[in-house]
Nucleic acid binder design. Structure first.
Lengths: 151, 151
DNA sequence: TATTGTTATACTCTATAACTATA
DNA sequence: TATAGTTATAGAGTATAACAATA
């Protein structure tokens, strides 16, 4: 892919650096709420309909089930997420995003859109459209892979 | 930028998710060495000539100076990095990557290249070239911004 | 006084393992 | 016996603040 195959010249390295740097920014904006980027990711997964249970979240995000308990606890405490037992299988908790949760997602969506605008300014219209397209496809494949092996 | 401006539809969100996920993969591969992705990042910054002192690293990577001390300590202990006092300004430590450090960077570069190949397979040649171009430009601007305000 | 680096300390995030309950 | 979730515990990673040395 990259013409330079030394570590800093790879797309993988750059994705890692840019992505973790962005995660730091999001973390800073979330700090006052006591939430982390992972809380946000979990909430977004639920809202998008990728997950119905805590187990789904753990697999999709590749985090331990015990962490999901904590994330869900804290999201629930803040009124952003609802847990209720699945009547059909009382081991499961069905998760839904509350109105307040939607608000938070929307608010953070605005922050993300502002970042996108800045990226757009740095890349120009052509390249930034291409970046969007590539990232959307990678994200889609990732979700697809991790959704497999679980109805 | 993105046609969908909800959080999960933004480039910023996807960069964050894909980047931190990749960082986890790198962390797993580094585990046996006792190093983290940040150690690797610091080493790469030094090797690329972006930084000459610990202070530079802290600013470029946006981490605390005290963390840089620990990173440098551990890299030095493993013979990957050398610290020597700057004779011209004895407060500073001039950092250089050792041969062993270059080897590690090269090894992790191969891992990154393998990831790039997989990304390429998922995106196809056209899109993956465009992703490379966009990421390279974003990374360049980032380094440029953070190098400013410090000769 | 300002810069560079260090130490001491404490806190946040996360995983592992053992457990409960349901199936 | 297997699955979904929970609790208890411990460890890794990081920042803050106080400090030392040099300029």
């Amino acid at each position: 892919m990259a013409t330079d195959s030394s570590l800093p010249g790879t797309a993988a390295f750059r994705l890692m650096v840019l992505g973790t740097d962005l995660a730091n920014d999001f973390a800073a904006h979330l700090r006052e709420t006591g939430l982390t980027p992972k809380h946000l990711g979990a909430l977004a997964m639920v809202e998008q309909g990728f997950t119905r249970t805590q187990d789904d979240i753990a697999r999709l995000m590749r985090v331990s089930p015990s962490l999901v308990v904590r994330l869900a606890d804290q999201l629930e405490q803040r009124g952003l997420l609802e847990r209720r037992r699945d009547p059909a299988n009382r081991r499961k908790h069905l998760l839904t995003v509350t109105g307040k949760g939607e608000s938070l997602l929307s608010e953070m969506g605005s922050l993300a859109a502002a970042v996108d605008a800045e990226l757009g300014a740095r890349l120009g219209g052509r390249l930034s459209g291409q970046l969007d397209e590539a990232l959307a496809q990678l994200m889609g494949k990732l979700m697809e892979d991790r959704s497999r092996k679980s109805p």
